[in-house]
Structure formats: structure tokens, C-alpha cells
């Protein structure tokens, strides 16, 4: 799909919790097809000290309105300034970037595991993977109840499970401590995950042990986002690959993680 640099209109900026915001952007033109796992690279002009763009995954797409949304979690300066943009502001975006997840077959059962800044692509898969509610299981982890975002808009697409480290929502512990994860992992046909690297590595390790197909979406730091700087590389069984163009989604069997 052809990539473009476009000035998009911010039509909505909704604060979801203390550090998560949902930004809805609208194009003047018809949107290109955008798949779960793909991302955009956003210019944060409001703060001149932020030089490079920042990558964010697609949370959702509404082709009719020519809109798509992002789920922005505040990490440092750039993400913080981005969340101060208001409806009516213009934001320059390069998109669509990267390759999406391998979509499941009609009879498959999938487990989507998200944490931290990796929740967006999991929600988007749940919506567009075309499976029935009982085939889609979404497991989201966070430190505490107020670190989770409201996912009620997605609960008709799958069964949701939560973990918190303090036990304030769902089961206590990490995603890998959850009962469904511990007892049913090998019953899934595909596992998809995005979030902090330690979480993805723990999931990858268990998926390998259970012999289940597993794709992860990596968040290596990027300078360009479209394959020219070679800064975002990840080691794979066939050498360094660019996370921005060869990924961000990788099958764990292609990575050289020591798991």
C-alpha cells in the first residue's frame, strides 16, 4: 500500500485514564486499507525540542468517516505533548506503515495479549478478525485498575480478561499468571501479543513450549518509520530486519530471543 505524508485533522481527543488518550484523526481523502498491527508516524510540532516523529499503532478505523484512532499512552515528552492537542488541530502523519498480523482462519480460536502501550493493536484485531465472540479471547494486563482503559466498545467482539499487579481488577499478577493463560494456552490456534518486551518474551516462551503459533508486535525506537534509516533493527534468524518495514509484527520463530 502506498505510504503518504498527510496533514490530518484531529477531530477528538478523549482522555481515557490518567495516562491514556484516544486521538481520532480524519483525512480529507479516502483512507487506504489499514490492518491491525500497522502504525502511523506522527509529527509533534507543538514542541520544537521534539525532533523526530513518534510511532503509534492504529486502534481503530472508520472508513466511512475517513477517520482512524490512536491510543496514546504518556511515556516521555513526545507522547505527553501529543495528548495536549485539541480537536481542530492539524497533525502531520506518515501512514500506513509496517505489516499487520496474520489474520486467523474462520474456525480458529485466538488469544490476544496486550499490556502497556500495546493494547491498541489487540483491540483492533478483536474487532476486524471476523471471528465469533467465543473464538476471541483478549487478555489485558496493567499495574492497577486505574491503569486499564475502558474497553466496553470492544466487549462484543471477544471475551475480555484482566490482570492487575495489585489485584484491583481481574486476577492478581501478570498476564502470564492468569488462569485462562495457565490452563488453556495450548487450546488456542494463534496467540498475538504487543506490549513491554519482558511480557512479550514471557508469552513467546510459553507459546513455544505449548507449540502455538505466536506473533509479537515490536516497538523498537525509530527515526524514519519507512525503511531508510536502518535504526529500528531486530535480530532475526535471517539477520537484522527493520521493525518498521519487515515488522513491526514478527512470528516468534523468526526472532532470536533467548527464551
Amino acid at each position: 500500500m502506498k505510504k503518504t505524508v498527510q496533514e490530518l485533522l484531529l477531530v477528538e481527543n478523549e482522555q481515557l485514564n490518567h495516562d491514556n488518550f484516544r486521538l481520532v484523526l480524519q483525512s480529507e481523502n479516502e483512507l487506504p486499507p489499514i490492518f491491525p498491527g500497522q502504525f502511523v508516524n506522527v509529527e509533534i510540532k507543538k514542541a520544537t525540542e521534539i525532533f523526530l516523529r513518534r510511532p503509534f499503532s492504529i486502534l481503530d478505523v472508520d472508513p466511512e468517516k475517513r477517520q482512524f484512532s490512536l491510543l496514546v499512552k504518556i511515556l516521555g515528552r513526545g507522547s505527553k505533548v501529543l495528548t495536549t492537542y485539541q480537536a481542530g488541530d492539524k497533525i502531520s502523519v506518515i501512514y500506513p506503515l509496517g505489516n499487520g498480523f496474520t489474520m486467523p482462519k474462520a474456525d480458529e480460536k485466538v488469544l490476544l495479549i496486550g499490556g502497556g502501550s500495546g493494547v491498541a493493536p489487540m483491540l483492533y484485531i478483536s474487532k476486524v478478525c471476523g471471528l465469533n465472540l467465543d473464538q476471541v479471547h483478549v487478555l489485558l494486563g496493567a499495574r492497577s485498575q486505574n491503569d486499564h482503559v475502558d474497553v466496553s466498545a470492544y466487549q462484543s467482539f471477544g471475551k475480555f480478561y484482566f490482570t492487575t499487579e495489585d489485584g484491583s481488577l481481574g486476577e492478581k499478577g501478570f498476564v502470564t499468571n492468569h488462569s485462562i493463560y495457565k490452563s488453556e494456552l495450548s487450546t488456542f490456534d494463534k496467540i498475538y501479543t504487543c506490549g513491554p518486551n519482558p511480557m512479550m518474551k514471557a508469552v513467546a516462551k510459553d507459546a513455544v513450549a505449548a507449540g502455538v503459533f505466536c506473533e509479537v508486535s515490536l516497538e523498537n525506537t525509530m527515526a524514519c518509520g519507512f525503511g531508510v534509516c536502518l535504526c529500528c533493527v531486530e535480530k532475526t534468524t535471517t539477520g537484522h530486519k527493520c521493525v518498521c518495514t519487515d515488522g513491526p509484527v514478527f512470528n516468534i520463530k523468526d526472532l532470536t530471543w533467548q527464551i
Binding site: 525540542e49 521534539i50 525532533f51 523526530l52 523498537n220 525506537t221 525509530m222 527515526a223 534509516c229 536502518l230 535504526c231 529500528c232 533493527v233 531486530e234 535480530k235 539477520g239 537484522h240
Partner: peptide, 23 residues
């Protein structure tokens, strides 16, 4: 050439450092 290991990039005030290493 495989180039250098990740991380290869650091943003700096009005610029960036790279350490791609001719991959």
C-alpha cells in the same frame, strides 16, 4: 555487513545520533 547491534539511534536536541554501521 550486518551493521551494529540495536539500539542504533538516540534523539538529541534538533538532531539525532546514529550508529548503523554500514548495514
Amino acid at each position: 555487513r550486518e551493521g551494529n547491534d540495536y539500539p542504533r539511534m538516540a534523539e538529541t536536541p534538533s538532531g539525532m545520533l546514529n550508529a548503523v554501521g554500514l548495514q
